[in-house]
Design a protein around this nucleic acid. Structure first.
Lengths: 146, 146
DNA sequence: TTTCTTGCAAAACTTTTGCACGTTA
DNA sequence: TAACGTGCAAAAGTTTTGCAAGAAA
């Protein structure tokens, strides 16, 4: 399997776009510690390595990474779009603690199959889905009781 | 079962808040044709009945209705928060056509049970969930082929 | 009469865009 | 060298907030 870096290069070439140091850096940073980061957060991290980089470039690059399938936009309904690396990773959903924000990745074959079935029953061709489970994690529940 | 209007009144009283003509009108409008409306859209409708009403009042009232459990915020990731009446209605999820925006309400016992089970396996107490299925509806697929 | 609510306008935020200048292929 | 990319600042779009005046309990 191609590295994410190569996959990105290939995508850019394919679209007649160009590789730049900024794009490389943003992808690197995203891959390194990029779980559920917002554009703003990523911008802050990227800026430490290259203070001259602009916020707009981060937004624009995230869109490219998204279009190329290297990262996945997430929507936790907190007002900002978050992203996670998705290249070569299996699809998963999220179980989120409403108190502390803890975020557990889940995958469930039964649910995936039912989703397909439901779409088919309505004549839809399923493209993607989003599922977020919100609850209270064990730690927070203990604190609540104490 | 209480009417939504009464439930809202009770909620307001309970919170030491007050019923007003604006709040009554916004709730009425929401109930009447309120499926998947944004604040902006609701504002437009409400304004026809009472042109003096302010946008901010609609936002503020939607928050109240949300907090009181009368309406449910939806997040179709189109940049705006949408709402639907939820009082006395069964929970359901959404199957959305990516092309035309068609929106079908779905409910599935199997999935709901699995969600509970997954949360439990991780020690979570499940509070709520959101699930959106994105696909292409039969009509749009036909158009695409034509 | 006290507290809450309203409408307005301004502010706050996230994200997008226009533009002149630099860079990539 | 032709096309694309960048940083900056301004703009766009949604939602929130401060405030003075008005209304509900």
């Amino acid at each position: 399997m191609k590295t994410p870096q190569d996959a990105f290069s290939d995508y850019l070439t394919d679209q007649n776009l160009k590789m730049t140091p900024q794009r490389r850096l943003i992808l690197e940073t995203m891959l390194k510690q990029g779980d559920h980061v917002s554009s703003e957060e990523l911008y802050a991290r990227v800026k430490k390595k290259d203070p001259s980089i602009g916020q707009a470039t981060v937004y624009r690059t995230l869109k490219l990474l998204s279009d190329s399938g290297l990262v996945e936009p997430l929507d936790f309904a907190d007002g900002v779009t978050r992203y996670e690396p998705s290249y070569g990773k299996e699809h998963h959903d999220h179980l989120i603690c409403e108190r502390c924000g803890k975020n557990i990745e889940i995958m469930d074959e039964t649910i995936e199959r039912r989703q397909e079935a439901i779409a088919r029953e309505h004549g839809f061709t399923l493209c993607s889905h989003k599922m977020y489970l919100y609850g209270v994690c064990p730690d927070c529940r203990k604190k609540g009781e104490a």
